[in-house]
Nucleic acid binder design. Structure first.
Lengths: 180, 180
DNA sequence: ACAGAGCGCGACAAAACGCCGCAGCGGATG
DNA sequence: CATCCGCTGCGGCGTTTTGTCGCGCTCTGT
């Protein structure tokens, strides 16, 4: 199952570059895309009747969580996916309870976004315990990727947010890309 | 806001020790507690009309996720919290969509469980995502704690699941406990 | 009583890390 | 245009952390 081609997708993210990249990728796949960089701009797109929406959580004008309810009131059929820098259980709970169909952590490409919409479409799987604890190296890698993305690829900032030396982050990134 | 004292709490977990500890702690606080160690045993408690439930995800007889729907059909007012070894965004999404009110990662004590029920009671917060990226050391520590708990405190098993040496885990645990 | 599994810990080499400095490279700023 | 500023990539070096052995101890079960 996949997202139907006549879907109209609304992207809400204050990061112009990331949002732009995602928009292009989705348009390349044949979808109609609307963009907004803040909460108010997002509500202004309502008349265009989007069928799907990607909401960033961390925006200057307010969290994407606050958008979910009004959007669903205006467009009850809207399928919302929440996108955030580093996934947290707490915000996941809030997002889903508010009516989002899925939750993604950055970095997320177009295919991941579309897959997230789909998972919301079909019946809940309600299983797949997939219980192998992720290795320490794996969680470290994922967290580094998230923070790096959150810093817009700025290694220096990411390093200090992660609490390690710039040189060390540099070396980790140099050694690890093979796993990706 | 807190859980009312006449609540009847159902605990479903195959780990007898953990479940037992939680049961005692909840009973000490004055709550009526029912226990079950598998899916079928849990359904057998339905006639006792529990008002709240804590479901473990990883059980031999099947995932706690599969319990959510039938439990809610039988007891529509039931407030369900899902408890799991290491929190995953994917299972959180499934759990909440299936009707759970919250999601917890082990180790979780009685107060955390009760708080989780409450968060399900009041209106969704939908704000304050507290956006400070957790340091690498912090996420490492939390993940280690989860896996360690999942291995029942067995350092040897936890070490190999984490992909590092037993001696190394031992040293990390020796240096860090102050943070806990 | 004995085998098996874990734990705690010492020792030493290998690997990773913190830290300094230097050169190159765009983007502002005057 | 010259200049400053912040970021990157990289080499080197001393320090810290890991990996890997091995030993003795305790606990559990048949």
């Amino acid at each position: 199952m996949s997202v139907r081609l006549d879907a109209r997708i609304l992207l809400v993210d204050d990061d112009d570059r990331l949002r732009g990249r995602l928009a292009v990728a989705l348009e390349d796949r044949g979808y109609r895309v609307f963009q907004a960089n803040c909460v108010t701009a997002a509500m202004a797109v309502v008349p265009d009747a989007p069928t799907h929406a990607v909401l960033d959580l961390k925006m200057p004008g307010g969290s994407g969580l606050t958008l979910i309810e009004p959007l669903l009131v205006a467009l009850p059929e809207l399928r919302i996916v929440v996108l955030t820098g580093y996934g947290s259980i707490a915000t996941t709970v809030d997002a889903i309870r508010l009516g989002a169909v899925n939750y993604l952590s950055k970095p997320a490409d177009a295919d991941m976004v579309l897959a997230a919409f789909v998972r919301g479409d079909d019946a809940p799987l309600a299983e797949a315990p997939e219980y192998d604890p992720p290795s320490l190296a794996r969680t470290e890698w994922e967290h580094i990727q998230r923070v790096l993305d959150d810093c817009g690829g700025n290694i220096t900032k990411a390093a200090q947010k992660l609490g390690l030396h710039r040189r060390t982050l540099q070396r980790k990134l140099q050694i690890w890309p093979p796993n990706r």
